[in-house]
Simulated assay, not measured.
Amino acid sequence: MLLIEDDKIDQLHLRSILLDAYPEIELSIAESISDAKGYLDQNRYDLIMSDYYLNEESLDYRMLNKLNSINTPVIITSGRLEYEFSKTFNKLDHITFIDKLDINNRTLQTVFTKQINGAKRQITLMHDAELLKKKVEILDLFTSGISHDLKNPLNSIIGLVDYLEKELATDEEKVEVLNIIKRSAHDINETLNTLLNYVKLDYTCETDDSITSKKHIQTIYDEVKGQFSKSVVNFNINGNALINAPQVAFDIIFKNLISNSIKYKTPNRPLDITVDIRESYNDGVTIIYSDNGLGFTEENKGDIFLAFKRLNSSKDTKGHGIGMTLVKKSIELCHATIDYESTPGVGTTFYMKFSK
């Protein structure tokens, strides 16, 4: 234990009480703030007791924050004149103030028990956080390893197919078989990337970004539309608002919604996609995304966010059945909500609400 006290009489008084209550305690005594900083830099203590007013110098915020940052229980003693002022520091973790005139074995035992239990809880939380961090690191290494081990053979297959296509360019039947192999390899690669994104999503969205919604959604649309160059799409965005959310998660939401709209459009009419952005002072930002695509039935409504569940199983439409699961998880990481309604042959509308 470290006792920080400049008054010799108070030193003797506190030392006597401490050793009487806890005979086995190892006690170090610092007589000034500079002495205390030296002790704290060189040693780790289970408990610290400090006078609030040392050598005509009160503990400043920097010293209090130093005491607070080391996650050790701290008791600040003060006279009655400083007591009311010193209570303003009670918001600091691990720190308790007691009046010098109230110090006795009973008050010390009560305060010690409270502080030590608080420190134990803090240590447990820190330990749990460290374990979680290690598990995330292991998961990252595992997913990176799996990605490497699976992507290398896929890239080799695609490379070999490209070579064989050139060698067999005059044999249309064999070239078509090679194209099927290549498309299958690309599909596996896309599914693998989606699964890896799902696994990594939680720890790539730890902080919020400031997103200008209209401009950002337009950029996402332009990127996705480039993959479906033959599709005719009327895309309109109305309104604008600033949204605080992880950009990675926000991108996943609209990439999947837009690509699904294009994949599952009605064959006999142009696809219309409308995004309405509405900002409310009290309710945050609501984004209404609607299309006039195939839609889905009421009986399938509960399945839309299930992994590997495709509501349209057409062989002509590529998909891995995890896109909307990613949307749901991304919505949660954005601290948002999502609801939807759909009518077969008419289209689907999603209602997303983002907090400010």
Rank of each mutant, 00 (worst) to 15 (best):
L3D: 07
E5R: 12
K8D: 14
Q11G: 01
L19H: 09
A21V: 09
Y22Q: 12
A30T: 10
S32E: 13
S34V: 15
D35M: 14
L40G: 13
Q42D: 15
N43Y: 14
R44S: 10
Y45I: 05
S50I: 01
S50L: 01
L54P: 03
E56A: 06
E56W: 01
E56Y: 04
M63I: 01
L64R: 11
N65G: 00
P73C: 09
K87D: 06
I95T: 12
T107L: 14
L108W: 10
L108G: 03
T110W: 00
F112R: 02
K114Y: 08
K114Q: 13
G118I: 00
A119I: 00
Q122N: 15
T124K: 15
H127W: 12
H127F: 14
E137N: 08
I138G: 00
I138P: 00
L141A: 12
S147W: 01
H148T: 15
D162R: 13
E167D: 10
A169R: 07
E176Q: 15
N179R: 15
H186W: 09
N189S: 15
T191K: 12
L192G: 03
N193W: 00
T194W: 00
K200F: 14
D202L: 06
T204A: 05
E206K: 13
I211Y: 01
K214S: 08
I217T: 02
T219M: 08
K225M: 08
Q227K: 10
S229K: 12
S229C: 04
I237M: 07
N238P: 02
I243D: 06
N256E: 15
L257P: 06
N260Q: 10
N260D: 13
R269Y: 00
D272L: 08
T274A: 12
R278M: 10
E279C: 05
E279Y: 05
S280A: 06
Y281T: 12
Y281V: 11
G284A: 07
V285D: 03
T286W: 00
Y289R: 14
D291R: 04
L294A: 11
E299S: 13
E299K: 13
A307P: 06
R310N: 05
S314F: 07
S314I: 03
S314N: 09
T317D: 00
T325P: 04
E332M: 09
L333K: 14
Y340R: 06
F350W: 11
F350A: 02
K353E: 09
S355Y: 05
K356T: 13
